[in-house]
Design a protein around this nucleic acid. Structure first.
Lengths: 213, 213
DNA sequence: TAGATTGTTAATCGATTAACAATC
DNA sequence: TAGATTGTTAATCGATTAACAATC
């Protein structure tokens, strides 16, 4: 399954929350397509790939659809996540509102700088040395890397050796991992450079991923 | 030109900086392909689309190539950028190292919270009310939105009406703009959700954009 | 020259969209 | 029933890759 498909699934899910709040009980592929900015055919295709079916005449039931999407996206159980590097980006992730309602829980931060340590906060910041043990002990499977590029590959290796399977990397370097590790590199500098290219060129409009970014 | 192509161009440029530092004077499409993780054919195709040519037998001259890429990417002149919303993500962008050497300059932050104002810093944080005037006066063309989702569309409209052409949006909502506005939506929550899907599924490996988000 | 690499064309691959039979 | 919407197949579109003639 491609990343793009999964991103769309997440977007459908987010759109459905909004539609639900607006009182919708049923939706048609048209509604979702409008909300997310794709074609109705795309919506139906995406659903059919995951065996989600609606009613030939009555569309899809919002509540059912949300539940199915959440199941597929693994959002039916809480996912614990650690953050390594508690600079601005790391802290931003630790304080990100909205993770909670998505069943994502940031459980700890790690840093090499002793000045950052604070074991008493709701989300404790611990010594980097402790990361390995913490991950093993708590069975953490997802980590966020928000350290300088120079340290990123090394942090990755510690994470992976401790058992982490999925990594969101903000260090401006393309991390490479083993076959069974999922790495999602997000390079904020590139995203900005990209915009600069497009405003200096005739090509305009929304340049959303891909993003596959 | 697709976003993916431009992102690759930026990656070639970054790789070339590293290769230059390592003493390379010439590179072959093979070297760049390895560095960026694409095929050599992709590299040559990308270059040929922008009229960049090498030597049939001697590859490409690093210094020349860097210069040509920077020209295409609009990095030959300084680009001034403002940030709206000085929470964690906004602050992270204001403090992002490496923008300077990319000729990107964050010139001001804006916030609605008076507690954030600080006109004396190197990068001043000003009242949101002042944003419109500031953008017009300084001819700013690029802005970063790092406000809560509820405020994002409104901030976008002020930005656009003041003359901003390109926007990097971190608010978790798909912003829509006019034909001649470039909007790049980066949704950090979706990126993390994505990883969670893939670690709970057989599909593994690097799931770089698309980037796509 | 012989060998290696570019630049480009054609083939392939994958993702999106159009279209329409099935059916509620 | 008539009309509307799904689910899926086939067509299209775009991007990547293979292959190779040109040539340094």
């Amino acid at each position: 399954m491609s990343k793009r498909t999964i991103i769309r699934l997440s977007k459908y899910k987010n759109a459905l929350y909004r539609l639900k709040k607006m009182g919708f009980v049923k939706v048609f592929s048209d509604n979702l397509a409008d909300a997310v900015g794709v074609t109705p055919a795309q919506v139906r295709k995406d659903f059919s790939m995951f065996g989600i079916s609606g009613n030939k005449r009555g569309g899809y039931t919002v509540a059912e659809l949300v539940e199915k999407l959440n199941k597929i996206l693994g959002k039916d159980k809480v996912q614990d996540v650690i953050v390594v590097g508690t600079g601005h980006i790391g802290t931003a992730m630790m304080n990100y509102r909205g993770f909670e309602k998505e069943n994502i829980r940031i459980v700890a931060g790690f840093d090499i700088d002793p000045a950052k340590y604070n074991a008493d906060e709701k989300i404790p910041v611990l010594q980097l040395d402790k990361m390995r043990g913490y991950v093993k002990e708590h069975g953490i499977r997802v980590g966020i890397i928000a350290v300088p590029d120079i340290a990123a590959q090394q942090v990755l290796e510690i994470m992976v050796s401790a058992g982490i399977k999925g990594i969101l990397n903000f260090a401006p370097i393309n991390l490479k991992g083993e076959e069974d590790t999922v790495i999602n590199n997000v390079n904020l500098g590139l995203e900005l450079e990209n915009i600069i290219y497009f405003i200096n060129t005739d090509k305009k409009g929304v340049i959303n991923e891909d993003t596959d970014a």
